[in-house]
Design a protein around this nucleic acid. Structure first.
Lengths: 203, 203
DNA sequence: AGATTCCTTGACCGATCGTTCCAAGATGGT
DNA sequence: ACCATCTTGGAACGATCGGTCAAGGAATCT
């Protein structure tokens, strides 16, 4: 049958994305991907071009979908780094608590497997992580910003804690525990910014 | 050939452990495990009993090997939580920087894959994570200790940051970046303990 | 020395992996 | 109405997966 596509590409990408998200690259077999998307192998290969290519497109869709939410949370409180980071973690925790989506984080999942991913995809994951870092870094500038070097470190720290929330949630940590971790990370930001010499002098 | 074992079980376990550590459960095939240990399938099955059982024994060996070092670092500075946590991270960072051993952390790697591990092993990983948490928790007691609830949260926080160091190192983060993350986590402990009402009153 | 027990090697099993290919049917252009 | 184009489902491919098994040599015991 058919002559025009019988399915929505983005919907299929969403479903495939969840399979990679839940199971990681290797354990996401084409059979499972086919079942989840409702597509046969012909459609899968004709549309996306193979497992590697499909995986990369799922990474991009994930980064786009949730990256947008992060961006929004961070920029809503522009000029107030602590509030921005709090909003960032609120989005992360909401995603983790969302039962309609797997635990953890596709980027974190992929980062943990980066050494075994084929070259292109491994580098791609690193790029996505760096994008996230840069986004957080931007939110740390503003009136009560830290010196550049410290802001870089804080941004890496926030990204790191974000990864840890993904790992711990996969290991069955409760929402309460994850919230406590995020709160402590926010306090780190607050304390670090407050302790900055420049501002100690300005206050 | 043979009649008595031709290899050292612990040595073989070490080598198998590194394969799981580097590649994760699924990507560690029996062929690769055989090559790494120098053992045939017969020896592998006769000695360890199958992939699942071997994996569990590798988890235990990892937990034993590095858990001992953590324990030592934490208890050397008993009564001084901040120094204890600093020593803890020093051990973690030394392991990550050690080129003779894969990046990341076998426990973190396994935790990220917990949902797809067969029931027994998934629960086992959670147990090991909890053991680590309890160890850190113990180090947070003492003369300048936080109230119980806060100490619980701090212990979870430290374990979380530890996981994040593993993930980021696998994604290619530099030693400098990882050190900065650990330092910020230590400052969080220091600030949190200092800000405790009980001690603010006692000082 | 002979019998027994154990370990190792390597072939082999069915299942599943990612990928390729093709026949069949539906669509759009002319 | 006809043809070129495209999509689809499923069969089939070689490779590799975890696991099993039998043959045969080495060590131990009587």
């Amino acid at each position: 049958m058919s002559g025009r596509k019988q399915f929505d590409v983005d919907t299929a990408l969403d479903q495939a994305m969840r399979v990679f998200w839940e199971r990681g690259y290797t354990d996401a077999s084409l059979d499972v991907l086919g079942s989840a998307t409702g597509l046969g192998r012909g459609s899968l290969y004709g549309t996306f071009g193979g497992k590697d290519a499909l995986f990369r497109q799922c990474l991009d869709r994930y980064a786009s979908t949730y990256g947008t939410r992060y961006e929004q949370a961070l920029t809503t409180h522009a000029g107030d780094p602590v509030r921005a980071i709090e909003a960032f973690f609120d989005v992360v925790l909401a995603r983790i608590a969302d039962p309609s989506v797997p635990a953890g984080c596709l980027i974190a999942q992929s980062a943990a497997q980066a050494p075994i991913l084929k070259g292109d995809n491994s580098a791609h994951v690193r790029t996505l992580l760096d994008t996230q870092r840069r986004r957080v870094r931007t939110a740390l500038t503003g009136p009560s910003a830290a010196p550049e070097e410290l802001a870089d470190e804080l941004a890496t720290f926030i990204v790191a804690v974000n990864q840890s929330l993904a790992v711990l949630s996969r290991a069955g940590a409760s929402d309460t525990e994850l919230r406590a971790v995020a709160r402590l990370a926010c306090q780190t930001v607050a304390n670090t910014l407050r302790a900055t010499p420049e501002h100690a002098a300005c206050d």
